[in-house]
């Protein structure tokens, strides 16, 4: 308050007060003194009212920021389930790959050792050191071996194809992890927004998730994505044939 403002606001009040004092008029003196005190109180009250309103609107915004509530109550717990699912999926894929490798190793080993036995006999035959009985034996074993090589290498080929398909987990888990990274980003942004709100109240709304629909949702996670999700390829085939595709 400038000296002029001070004078304008309190000048008359003080003059009235001092006149009452000079006159020894107790009633008038108390009345003028009360007027001065009321004037001060009014200023204080209006400040307090403003503070209360500000606090109220800040609290309201906080409560109304449904995105934050959604994040805290639904999406963060969901994200934990999604990451659990990634863990399960990668675990299964790693085990399946190792099962197939463990199954394939001995198959390749058997072909190799059978071939070695046969080639020893074959060498004896080439050196003309073989009895007619051993020769018949060699022919029988050769036949068994050729059949075995055919079926075993087919089995190996199938296992390798299966190993290849199993690597699909990287895409599926990658999509889920990417979704969680996006969520973490959003939590960071929303918390920043909250900090901003706590220090001033001109904060902008936290950005929503506009592009989600056309971008896609990523793989459906059991126990997290309920409702309108198809249950495997058969479901899709039925849905599409209903649409004439």
């Amino acid at each position: 308050m400038t000296p002029e403002e001070l004078k304008a606001r309190y000048g008359n009040l003080v003059l009235n007060l001092s006149a009452a004092l000079e006159a020894g008029d107790e009633t008038a003196f108390s009345a003028h003194l009360n007027a001065i005190m009321r004037d001060r109180d009014d200023g204080l009250w209006s400040q307090l009212r403003k503070l209360t309103t500000d606090l109220g609107s800040a609290l309201e915004r906080f409560q109304l920021d449904s995105r934050l509530v959604d994040l805290a109550e639904k999406e963060v717990p969901d994200a934990k389930h999604r990451l659990d699912y990634v863990l399960k999926m990668t675990d299964e894929a790693a085990h399946k790959t190792m099962d197939l490798v463990e199954q394939s190793g001995p198959l390749a080993g058997r072909i190799s050792s059978d071939a070695e036995k046969l080639s020893t006999m074959w060498q004896q035959f080439r050196n003309r050191q073989i009895s007619p009985e051993d020769f018949r034996n060699l022919l029988d074993q050769m036949e068994v071996f050729l059949n075995d090589v055919r079926s075993t290498s087919e089995q190996l080929r199938r296992n390798l194809a299966e190993v290849l398909m199993t690597q699909g987990y990287q895409d599926l888990s990658g999509q889920i992890i990417r979704g969680v990274i996006k969520l973490v980003d959003e939590v960071e942004l929303t918390l920043g927004h909250l900090v901003h709100l706590a220090t001033s109240h001109t904060g902008k709304e936290a950005p929503g998730d506009k592009f989600r629909e056309s971008r896609g949702h990523g793989p459906a996670v059991p126990g997290v994505d309920h409702g309108n999700v198809v249950n495997g390829q058969q479901d899709i085939d039925a849905l599409l044939s209903g649409l004439g595709i």
């Binding site: 896609g216 793989p219 994505d225 999700v229 198809v230």
Partner: peptide, 10 residues
């Protein structure tokens, strides 16, 4: 794709 919502397939 992994997208599995019915409305997406439609």
């Amino acid at each position: 794709t992994a997208e599995a919502k019915r409305e997406q397939i439609v």
